[in-house]
Design a protein around this nucleic acid. Structure first.
Length: 548
RNA sequence: GGCCCUGUGGUCAAGCGGUUAAGACGGAGCCCUCUCAAGGCUCAAUCCCGGGUUCGAUUCCCGGCAGGGUCACCA
């Protein structure tokens, strides 16, 4: 059979470049020996999720800790799945979490010399190589219909055979020249398949950057490389793109491990040296009694929007992911609390081999400590950013008064002091925590644990003694002084030795005042709260709180 | 079902033939304290099972079992 003629008939494109020329068009990158070139290669199917972020972070860190390049390639070979605006959304979402590309689709960079970065725009490259494969008898046309393929699969399943297009099941592999041209003349649609040279009897020992030595079966499947619309499949596009974009390290989910033999054979057929691969274990979730991969449909916590809405600090999400990515990160963070996470010596080889369960408690903990490190200004910006988008009208109103909010936050969060409040995981909690500092959202619940006479006596007595210029010591001395007036112990030690002799103690006096002023039995330092609220408001709240 | 990956406390996990089997989150308790928060201290809790190899296996080998993944003209 005249393969050159066949190739020309199958891929009649006029001005395809000779495949070899691409080696010069996309030369090896000048880079330091250890610098990694990595990529994120999403299909533009819509919104990016936590799994993507996780993977992107591994890519980005691998590139940037080695002085390499991290680029964005769009795998848009499946027209049906395309969603408008998806690319911008990927870039924006990642940017929100502080992850940026050096190069690639929609990235404004002088480094963009390996594009186009959309696979649909690289059609001629794939077709040039497919043509070359046909000429070399490493690929052939297949006219099988979906029905025929399904029938074969059913037969294979029934006979407990390996499913797929291989060996004697690969009918079109041995089509006669006449038959091929007749089909072509009849206008039958066709795909181009790889003519596999492998055998399922052979094992390949492969070194994965995460899993270590992996034993896989050699590929013997005549996989489709060009679909009937002339667009490549993922497998084919991956081999060509990662070669010519000079990717050194392909980091992808472990669901790809099973198609690794295909990729290895494709690289061989194409005459490329394969990149190094790192197959990451996936994020899992506990469902019922068993673990399962986090799912886009079922699990809202997979969506990145979920974290934005809930008001997690973006850096916290990233750091949480870092703790899963490299377990040494957590210990390192503890030793270097002020350090930028980017200074951590990230290594793909240190990534866990087994799928980690997504742990909300841990995320909450990381988020708490990140928020507790914010300056008053940063805290204000963070909370304001959240209220602008997700808060109530009242919240937005409150955040107009920046100086007042900053005073409140400094107190509530303990900013500047030695004791930082460290229980705010999400912006929303922080915003709700300061409601009582505003008259319109002050919603007291007067749940006193003492009777009317005691409560009113405490309230009245304090109102008489109250002087806004008192410092903490003077303020507390006054609170103490009220205790004996209502039969409470002024000293805790005194109370502890004989609790039955008193109706209560100083902390109970403080509790009554606290409920009156903040509307709740718990709050930060009451003295400071009163100072921020101001005399007029304090006195009003004290009298409003009396039991009638 | 075939093939592949994984298997240390509830969770994330160090560990690479000899350890009292780290640490973190979560849980329980105590202390401190005007309450909350924070902080300090203490406690409970782990090597999937069975065979080997070895003086000695969590660690190496084999076999089970369990969980996950994958078997498309989707990526």
């Amino acid at each position: 059979m005249d393969l050159k003629k066949l190739a020309a008939a199958l891929i009649p494109d006029k001005d395809l470049l000779p495949p070899e020329s691409y080696e010069e068009i996309y030369p090896e990158r000048a880079r330091a020996p250890k610098a990694e070139v990595t990529r994120l290669a999403p299909s533009p199917t819509g919104f990016i999720h936590l799994g993507n972020l996780y993977s992107a972070l591994a890519d980005e860190r691998s590139a940037h800790t080695t002085g390499g390049i991290f680029y964005l390639r769009i795998e848009d070979t499946d027209e049906k799945r395309r969603v408008d605006g998806a690319v911008e959304s990927v870039i924006r979402s990642l940017d929100y979490f502080g992850i940026n590309f050096d190069e690639g689709a929609e990235i404004d960079s002088p480094l963009n010399k390996y594009g186009p970065y959309y696979q649909r725009r690289r059609a001629e490259i794939y077709r040039a190589f497919a043509k070359r494969l046909i000429e070399r008898d490493l690929a052939y046309p297949c006219f099988c219909t979906e029905e025929e393929l399904n029938a074969v699969r059913e037969e294979q399943t029934a006979g407990k055979k390996t499913t797929g297009y291989y060996g004697s099941y690969a009918k079109c592999r041995s089509l006669s020249e006449e038959r091929i041209y007749a089909n072509l003349a009849a206008g039958k649609p066709y795909v181009i398949r790889l003519k596999s040279q492998g055998s399922a009897d052979n094992k390949i020992i492969f070194r994965d950057e995460i899993k270590g030595e992996v034993t896989v079966t050699e590929n013997d499947q005549d996989v489709v490389i060009l679909k009937s619309d002339g667009i490549p499949t993922y497998h084919f596009a991956h081999a060509i793109d990662d070669h010519f974009m000079r990717t050194t390290l392909v980091i992808r989910g472990e669901e790809w491990l099973s198609s690794l033999p295909v990729h290895l054979e494709l690289h061989k057929a194409l005459g490329f040296r394969p990149p190094r691969y790192a197959h990451t274990s996936s994020l899992m979730k506990m469902d019922g009694g068993t673990k399962r991969k986090l799912s886009k449909r079922k699990d809202p916590e997979l969506s990145l929007d979920y974290y934005r809405k809930a008001g997690y600090f973006p850096l916290a999400v990233v750091k949480y992911l870092m703790t899963i990515l490299n377990s040494g990160f957590e210990e390192w963070s503890l030793k270097n609390p002020e350090a930028d996470y980017r200074d951590f010596p990230f290594k793909v080889s240190k990534m866990g081999k087994s799928g980690a369960l997504f742990d909300l408690d841990k995320l909450n903990d990381v988020s708490k400590t990140e928020i507790s490190k914010l300056s008053a200004e940063q805290c204000y910006d963070f909370l304001k950013g959240w209220t602008d988008e997700f808060g109530t009208e009242a919240d937005r109103q409150h955040f107009q008064d920046k100086t007042y909010i900053i005073d409140v936050l400094s107190l509530i969060m303990g900013i500047g002091g030695k004791k930082r409040r460290k229980d705010i995981e999400r912006a929303e909690q922080g915003v709700r925590l300061i409601d009582y500092f505003f008259d319109d959202t002050f919603a007291p619940e007067y749940n006193y644990r003492f009777g009317k006479d005691t409560v009113n006596a405490v309230l009245k007595s304090f109102a008489e003694k109250y002087d806004p210029s008192d410092d903490n010591g003077a303020w507390f001395a006054k609170v103490k002084a009220i205790a004996p007036e209502v039969g409470f112990a002024a000293e805790m030690s005194e109370y502890k030795t004989a609790p039955e002799k008193f109706g209560g103690n100083v902390s109970d006096v403080a509790e009554i005042l606290r409920i009156a002023v903040t509307g709740k039995p718990d709050s930060p330092d009451l003295c400071t709260i009163m100072r921020i609220l101001g005399k007029r408001r304090v006195l009003k709240r004290l009298s409003d709180a009396e039991i009638l």
